[in-house]
Protein backbone atom coordinates (compact mmCIF):
# COMPACT_ATOMS: atom_id res chain seq x y z
CA UNK A 1 0.00 0.00 0.00
CA UNK A 2 0.96 3.65 -0.20
CA UNK A 3 3.65 5.13 2.01
CA UNK A 4 2.62 6.58 5.35
CA UNK A 5 3.07 10.18 4.38
CA UNK A 6 0.13 9.82 1.99
CA UNK A 7 -2.12 8.42 4.67
CA UNK A 8 -4.47 10.73 6.54
CA UNK A 9 -5.88 8.23 8.98
CA UNK A 10 -5.16 4.62 9.78
CA UNK A 11 -7.33 2.28 11.76
CA UNK A 12 -5.88 -0.90 13.15
CA UNK A 13 -7.77 -3.88 14.54
CA UNK A 14 -10.57 -1.68 15.83
CA UNK A 15 -13.28 -3.20 18.01
CA UNK A 16 -16.32 -1.29 19.16
CA UNK A 17 -18.95 -3.02 21.27
CA UNK A 18 -22.43 -1.84 22.25
CA UNK A 19 -23.91 -2.63 25.64
CA UNK A 20 -27.64 -2.01 25.44
CA UNK A 21 -30.39 -4.00 27.15
CA UNK A 22 -27.77 -5.84 29.17
CA UNK A 23 -26.40 -7.53 26.11
CA UNK A 24 -23.19 -7.04 24.23
CA UNK A 25 -23.29 -6.37 20.52
CA UNK A 26 -19.92 -6.62 18.81
CA UNK A 27 -20.83 -4.02 16.24
CA UNK A 28 -17.30 -3.53 14.95
CA UNK A 29 -15.21 -6.61 15.49
CA UNK A 30 -11.67 -5.93 14.41
CA UNK A 31 -11.36 -3.76 11.33
CA UNK A 32 -8.24 -2.19 9.82
CA UNK A 33 -8.01 0.29 6.97
CA UNK A 34 -6.32 3.47 5.84
CA UNK A 35 -7.71 6.65 4.38
CA UNK A 36 -5.34 8.23 1.89
CA UNK A 37 -4.93 11.94 1.41
CA UNK A 38 -6.93 13.30 -1.49
CA UNK A 39 -8.54 9.91 -2.09
CA UNK A 40 -11.94 8.44 -1.41
CA UNK A 41 -12.38 5.31 0.63
CA UNK A 42 -15.80 3.77 0.26
CA UNK A 43 -17.10 1.48 2.95
CA UNK A 44 -19.88 -0.71 1.61
CA UNK A 45 -22.21 -3.07 3.34
CA UNK A 46 -25.80 -3.84 4.25
CA UNK A 47 -27.48 -1.90 7.03
CA UNK A 48 -26.31 -3.06 10.44
CA UNK A 49 -22.91 -4.24 9.21
CA UNK A 50 -21.10 -1.70 11.38
CA UNK A 51 -20.07 0.83 8.77
CA UNK A 52 -21.75 3.78 10.49
CA UNK A 53 -20.43 2.65 13.86
CA UNK A 54 -16.93 2.68 12.40
CA UNK A 55 -17.45 6.28 11.35
CA UNK A 56 -18.82 7.31 14.75
CA UNK A 57 -15.91 5.57 16.42
CA UNK A 58 -13.38 7.59 14.45
CA UNK A 59 -15.20 10.77 15.47
CA UNK A 60 -15.70 9.49 19.04
CA UNK A 61 -19.41 10.12 18.59
CA UNK A 62 -20.52 6.80 20.04
CA UNK A 63 -23.55 6.64 22.31
CA UNK A 64 -22.96 6.33 26.05
CA UNK A 65 -23.60 2.60 26.25
CA UNK A 66 -20.76 1.63 23.97
CA UNK A 67 -17.00 1.68 24.03
CA UNK A 68 -13.90 1.06 22.00
CA UNK A 69 -12.64 -2.34 23.15
CA UNK A 70 -9.29 -2.31 21.44
CA UNK A 71 -7.35 -1.18 18.41
CA UNK A 72 -5.78 2.05 17.23
CA UNK A 73 -7.16 4.98 15.33
CA UNK A 74 -4.22 7.10 14.28
CA UNK A 75 -4.74 10.50 12.77
CA UNK A 76 -1.65 11.62 10.87
CA UNK A 77 -1.87 15.36 11.35
CA UNK A 78 0.68 17.87 10.13
CA UNK A 79 2.01 18.11 13.69
CA UNK A 80 2.52 14.41 14.17
CA UNK A 81 0.35 11.41 14.89
CA UNK A 82 -2.61 11.50 17.23
CA UNK A 83 -4.07 8.36 18.72
CA UNK A 84 -7.74 9.20 18.72
CA UNK A 85 -8.85 6.14 20.68
CA UNK A 86 -6.84 7.35 23.68
CA UNK A 87 -8.45 10.78 23.78
CA UNK A 88 -11.22 11.61 26.18
CA UNK A 89 -14.54 11.39 24.34
CA UNK A 90 -15.55 14.98 24.90
CA UNK A 91 -12.21 16.29 26.01
CA UNK A 92 -10.47 19.32 24.65
CA UNK A 93 -8.15 17.50 22.23
CA UNK A 94 -10.97 15.49 20.71
CA UNK A 95 -13.10 18.61 20.30
CA UNK A 96 -10.23 20.38 18.59
CA UNK A 97 -10.05 17.57 16.03
CA UNK A 98 -13.78 17.26 15.46
CA UNK A 99 -15.12 19.71 12.93
CA UNK A 100 -11.71 21.17 12.34
CA UNK A 101 -9.44 18.27 11.31
CA UNK A 102 -12.04 15.57 10.74
CA UNK A 103 -15.54 16.60 9.78
CA UNK A 104 -18.62 14.55 9.18
CA UNK A 105 -21.84 14.79 7.22
CA UNK A 106 -24.85 12.67 7.92
CA UNK A 107 -27.42 10.61 6.14
CA UNK A 108 -30.52 12.70 6.66
CA UNK A 109 -30.05 16.46 6.31
CA UNK A 110 -33.67 16.85 7.46
CA UNK A 111 -32.84 15.76 10.98
CA UNK A 112 -29.16 16.60 11.15
CA UNK A 113 -29.72 20.35 11.24
CA UNK A 114 -31.15 22.01 14.33
CA UNK A 115 -34.58 23.34 13.36
CA UNK A 116 -34.53 26.34 15.68
CA UNK A 117 -31.35 28.00 14.42
CA UNK A 118 -30.56 29.61 11.10
CA UNK A 119 -28.27 27.88 8.64
CA UNK A 120 -25.79 30.71 9.04
CA UNK A 121 -25.70 30.33 12.79
CA UNK A 122 -25.03 26.61 12.55
CA UNK A 123 -22.22 26.98 10.05
CA UNK A 124 -20.79 29.90 12.00
CA UNK A 125 -20.65 27.79 15.16
CA UNK A 126 -17.86 25.67 13.71
CA UNK A 127 -15.87 28.72 12.69
CA UNK A 128 -16.41 30.33 16.06
CA UNK A 129 -14.81 27.43 17.88
CA UNK A 130 -12.03 26.53 15.47
CA UNK A 131 -10.85 29.89 14.14
CA UNK A 132 -10.07 33.33 15.52
CA UNK A 133 -12.35 35.09 13.07
CA UNK A 134 -14.48 37.98 14.24
CA UNK A 135 -18.24 37.98 14.04
CA UNK A 136 -18.40 39.81 10.73
CA UNK A 137 -15.62 37.70 9.24
CA UNK A 138 -17.48 34.57 10.26
CA UNK A 139 -20.58 35.85 8.54
CA UNK A 140 -18.67 36.71 5.39
CA UNK A 141 -16.97 33.32 5.36
CA UNK A 142 -20.28 31.54 5.92
CA UNK A 143 -21.77 33.33 2.93
CA UNK A 144 -18.71 32.42 0.86
CA UNK A 145 -19.02 28.80 1.86
CA UNK A 146 -22.69 28.69 0.92
CA UNK A 147 -21.87 30.26 -2.42
CA UNK A 148 -19.09 27.71 -3.00
CA UNK A 149 -21.57 24.95 -2.33
CA UNK A 150 -23.78 26.32 -5.06
CA UNK A 151 -26.51 27.92 -3.02
CA UNK A 152 -27.96 30.89 -4.86
CA UNK A 153 -28.44 34.22 -3.07
CA UNK A 154 -26.32 33.12 -0.10
CA UNK A 155 -26.54 36.61 1.46
CA UNK A 156 -30.25 36.03 1.97
CA UNK A 157 -30.38 32.29 2.51
CA UNK A 158 -27.82 32.50 5.29
CA UNK A 159 -30.48 33.81 7.66
CA UNK A 160 -33.05 31.17 6.74
CA UNK A 161 -34.05 28.30 8.95
CA UNK A 162 -33.46 24.72 7.80
CA UNK A 163 -37.15 24.07 7.14
CA UNK A 164 -37.17 26.58 4.31
CA UNK A 165 -34.32 24.74 2.57
CA UNK A 166 -34.93 21.80 0.27
CA UNK A 167 -33.31 18.45 1.04
CA UNK A 168 -30.48 18.94 -1.45
CA UNK A 169 -29.81 22.45 -0.18
CA UNK A 170 -29.68 21.23 3.39
CA UNK A 171 -27.10 18.64 2.46
CA UNK A 172 -25.10 21.37 0.72
CA UNK A 173 -25.37 23.44 3.88
CA UNK A 174 -24.21 20.41 5.85
CA UNK A 175 -21.21 20.06 3.56
CA UNK A 176 -20.52 23.79 3.89
CA UNK A 177 -20.58 23.28 7.67
CA UNK A 178 -18.25 20.30 7.45
CA UNK A 179 -15.84 22.04 5.06
CA UNK A 180 -15.84 25.35 6.93
CA UNK A 181 -12.53 24.72 8.66
CA UNK A 182 -10.83 22.91 5.75
CA UNK A 183 -10.71 19.51 7.42
CA UNK A 184 -8.12 16.96 6.33
CA UNK A 185 -10.69 14.20 6.44
CA UNK A 186 -14.36 14.24 5.55
CA UNK A 187 -16.52 11.38 6.72
CA UNK A 188 -19.76 11.12 4.79
CA UNK A 189 -22.30 8.68 6.22
CA UNK A 190 -24.62 7.81 3.36
CA UNK A 191 -24.91 11.48 2.43
CA UNK A 192 -27.36 10.96 -0.42
CA UNK A 193 -29.56 8.11 0.73
CA UNK A 194 -32.33 10.52 1.70
CA UNK A 195 -32.06 12.57 -1.48
CA UNK A 196 -33.31 12.32 -5.05
CA UNK A 197 -31.05 10.67 -7.59
CA UNK A 198 -30.49 13.90 -9.54
CA UNK A 199 -29.53 15.75 -6.37
CA UNK A 200 -27.32 12.82 -5.46
CA UNK A 201 -25.05 13.31 -8.45
CA UNK A 202 -24.79 17.04 -7.73
CA UNK A 203 -23.72 16.35 -4.17
CA UNK A 204 -21.13 13.81 -5.33
CA UNK A 205 -19.80 16.25 -7.90
CA UNK A 206 -19.36 18.75 -5.12
CA UNK A 207 -17.50 16.24 -2.98
CA UNK A 208 -15.28 15.27 -5.90
CA UNK A 209 -14.42 18.93 -6.40
CA UNK A 210 -13.54 19.38 -2.74
CA UNK A 211 -11.35 16.32 -2.82
CA UNK A 212 -9.25 17.51 -5.76
CA UNK A 213 -9.12 21.15 -4.69
CA UNK A 214 -8.32 20.71 -1.01
CA UNK A 215 -6.60 17.31 -0.93
CA UNK A 216 -9.30 16.22 1.50
CA UNK A 217 -9.38 12.55 2.30
CA UNK A 218 -12.93 11.26 2.09
CA UNK A 219 -14.43 8.28 3.82
CA UNK A 220 -17.73 7.59 2.15
CA UNK A 221 -20.15 5.17 3.68
CA UNK A 222 -22.69 3.73 1.34
CA UNK A 223 -24.65 0.64 0.43
CA UNK A 224 -24.77 1.55 -3.22
CA UNK A 225 -22.28 -0.28 -5.46
CA UNK A 226 -22.96 2.23 -8.24
CA UNK A 227 -21.70 5.03 -6.02
CA UNK A 228 -18.61 2.99 -5.25
CA UNK A 229 -17.82 2.44 -8.91
CA UNK A 230 -18.20 6.11 -9.59
CA UNK A 231 -16.40 7.73 -6.67
CA UNK A 232 -14.11 5.36 -4.84
CA UNK A 233 -10.38 5.08 -5.04
CA UNK A 234 -10.33 2.42 -2.35
CA UNK A 235 -13.10 0.09 -1.22
CA UNK A 236 -13.73 -1.83 1.96
CA UNK A 237 -16.62 -4.28 2.09
CA UNK A 238 -18.04 -4.81 5.55
CA UNK A 239 -20.16 -7.64 6.80
CA UNK A 240 -21.28 -8.11 10.43
CA UNK A 241 -18.52 -6.03 11.92
CA UNK A 242 -15.64 -7.24 9.77
CA UNK A 243 -14.04 -5.94 6.62
CA UNK A 244 -14.33 -9.04 4.47
CA UNK A 245 -12.57 -7.61 1.47
CA UNK A 246 -10.68 -4.42 0.79
CA UNK A 247 -8.44 -2.90 -1.82
CA UNK A 248 -8.36 -0.42 -4.65
CA UNK A 249 -11.61 0.01 -6.49
CA UNK A 250 -10.15 -1.61 -9.59
CA UNK A 251 -9.10 -4.70 -7.73
CA UNK A 252 -12.23 -5.20 -5.69
CA UNK A 253 -14.85 -4.45 -8.32
CA UNK A 254 -13.01 -6.14 -11.16
CA UNK A 255 -11.65 -9.16 -9.33
CA UNK A 256 -13.83 -9.70 -6.27
CA UNK A 257 -12.61 -12.73 -4.36
CA UNK A 258 -14.89 -12.85 -1.32
CA UNK A 259 -18.18 -14.64 -1.91
CA UNK A 260 -20.04 -11.80 -0.20
CA UNK A 261 -18.57 -9.15 -2.50
CA UNK A 262 -19.32 -11.32 -5.49
CA UNK A 263 -22.87 -11.85 -4.29
CA UNK A 264 -23.30 -8.13 -3.76
CA UNK A 265 -22.15 -7.39 -7.28
CA UNK A 266 -24.36 -10.08 -8.74
CA UNK A 267 -27.39 -8.69 -6.96
CA UNK A 268 -27.34 -5.35 -8.81
CA UNK A 269 -28.99 -4.84 -12.15
CA UNK A 270 -26.80 -3.07 -14.68
CA UNK A 271 -28.29 -0.22 -16.65
CA UNK A 272 -28.60 -0.95 -20.37
CA UNK A 273 -28.28 -4.70 -20.10
CA UNK A 274 -32.02 -5.13 -20.44
CA UNK A 275 -34.55 -7.26 -18.66
CA UNK A 276 -33.00 -10.62 -19.13
CA UNK A 277 -29.95 -10.11 -16.96
CA UNK A 278 -29.34 -12.66 -14.30
CA UNK A 279 -29.83 -10.95 -10.94
CA UNK A 280 -29.02 -13.08 -7.93
CA UNK A 281 -30.38 -11.91 -4.61
CA UNK A 282 -28.28 -12.93 -1.62
CA UNK A 283 -29.96 -15.86 0.10
CA UNK A 284 -31.09 -15.56 3.71
CA UNK A 285 -30.80 -12.47 5.86
CA UNK A 286 -28.17 -10.98 8.13
CA UNK A 287 -27.90 -12.93 11.38
CA UNK A 288 -29.06 -11.61 14.74
CA UNK A 289 -26.07 -9.71 16.13
CA UNK A 290 -26.71 -11.34 19.51
CA UNK A 291 -26.74 -14.79 18.01
CA UNK A 292 -23.83 -14.81 15.63
CA UNK A 293 -22.48 -17.72 13.60
CA UNK A 294 -19.40 -19.31 15.09
CA UNK A 295 -16.75 -18.72 12.47
CA UNK A 296 -17.04 -16.76 9.25
CA UNK A 297 -20.04 -14.50 9.71
CA UNK A 298 -21.18 -14.96 6.13
CA UNK A 299 -20.97 -18.75 6.15
CA UNK A 300 -24.71 -19.46 6.73
CA UNK A 301 -25.60 -17.52 3.59
CA UNK A 302 -22.59 -18.55 1.53
CA UNK A 303 -22.86 -20.78 -1.51
CA UNK A 304 -19.28 -21.91 -1.07
CA UNK A 305 -19.45 -22.88 2.55
CA UNK A 306 -17.17 -25.66 3.78
CA UNK A 307 -16.46 -27.08 7.23
CA UNK A 308 -13.42 -24.84 7.60
CA UNK A 309 -15.77 -21.87 7.68
CA UNK A 310 -16.71 -22.71 11.29
CA UNK A 311 -13.46 -21.04 12.20
CA UNK A 312 -13.01 -17.34 11.56
CA UNK A 313 -10.59 -16.93 8.60
CA UNK A 314 -7.64 -14.58 8.91
CA UNK A 315 -7.20 -11.49 6.85
CA UNK A 316 -4.94 -12.30 3.88
CA UNK A 317 -3.20 -9.55 1.93
CA UNK A 318 -2.65 -11.53 -1.22
CA UNK A 319 -1.38 -8.68 -3.29
CA UNK A 320 -0.28 -5.13 -2.56
CA UNK A 321 -3.64 -3.57 -3.12
CA UNK A 322 -6.04 -6.31 -2.16
CA UNK A 323 -6.87 -8.22 1.02
CA UNK A 324 -9.64 -10.62 1.91
CA UNK A 325 -11.06 -12.69 4.76
CA UNK A 326 -12.05 -16.04 3.33
CA UNK A 327 -10.81 -19.64 3.41
CA UNK A 328 -11.50 -20.24 -0.25
CA UNK A 329 -10.52 -16.94 -1.83
CA UNK A 330 -7.84 -18.58 -3.93
CA UNK A 331 -10.46 -20.32 -6.00
CA UNK A 332 -11.80 -16.93 -7.08
CA UNK A 333 -8.50 -15.37 -8.00
CA UNK A 334 -8.46 -13.99 -11.54
CA UNK A 335 -5.79 -16.51 -12.59
CA UNK A 336 -7.82 -19.39 -11.25
CA UNK A 337 -10.83 -18.58 -13.36
Amino acid sequence: MAGTQDVALSVKDLKTYFYTNNRCNKAVNGVSFEIRKGKTLCIVGESGCGKSVTASTIMQLLPKLSRIEQGQITYHSDDGDVNIEQLDRDGKEMRAIRGSEIAMIFQDPMTALNPVYTIGFQIGESLKYHTDLSRSEIRAKTIDLLRDMGISLPEMRVDDYPHSYSGGMRQRAMIAMAMSCNPKILIADEPTTALDVTIQSQIFELMEKLKTENETAIMLITHDMGVVAELADDVAVMYMGNIVEAGTVDQVLRYPVHPYTRALLESIPVLGRGRDQDIQPIAGSTPDPYDRPKGCQFAPRCKFRVDACDVMPDEVTYNETHRVMCWRYQEFLPDAE
Binding site: Y19, C24, D288
Partner: peptide, 21 residues
Amino acid sequence: SLNKKFDKILAREEAGELSSN
Protein backbone atom coordinates in the same frame (compact mmCIF):
# COMPACT_ATOMS: atom_id res chain seq x y z
CA SER B 1 -18.66 2.11 36.98
CA LEU B 2 -19.96 2.02 33.42
CA ASN B 3 -16.78 0.30 32.32
CA LYS B 4 -17.16 -2.24 35.09
CA LYS B 5 -20.70 -2.94 34.05
CA PHE B 6 -19.57 -3.37 30.45
CA ASP B 7 -16.87 -5.83 31.51
CA LYS B 8 -19.43 -7.87 33.36
CA ILE B 9 -21.81 -8.01 30.42
CA LEU B 10 -18.95 -8.86 28.08
CA ALA B 11 -17.76 -11.70 30.29
CA ARG B 12 -21.25 -13.18 30.46
CA GLU B 13 -21.75 -12.72 26.74
CA GLU B 14 -18.46 -14.53 26.04
CA ALA B 15 -19.50 -17.34 28.32
CA GLY B 16 -22.71 -17.65 26.35
CA GLU B 17 -24.90 -17.07 29.39
CA LEU B 18 -27.08 -14.45 27.78
CA SER B 19 -29.80 -15.57 25.46
CA SER B 20 -32.54 -13.79 23.61
CA ASN B 21 -35.37 -12.62 25.83
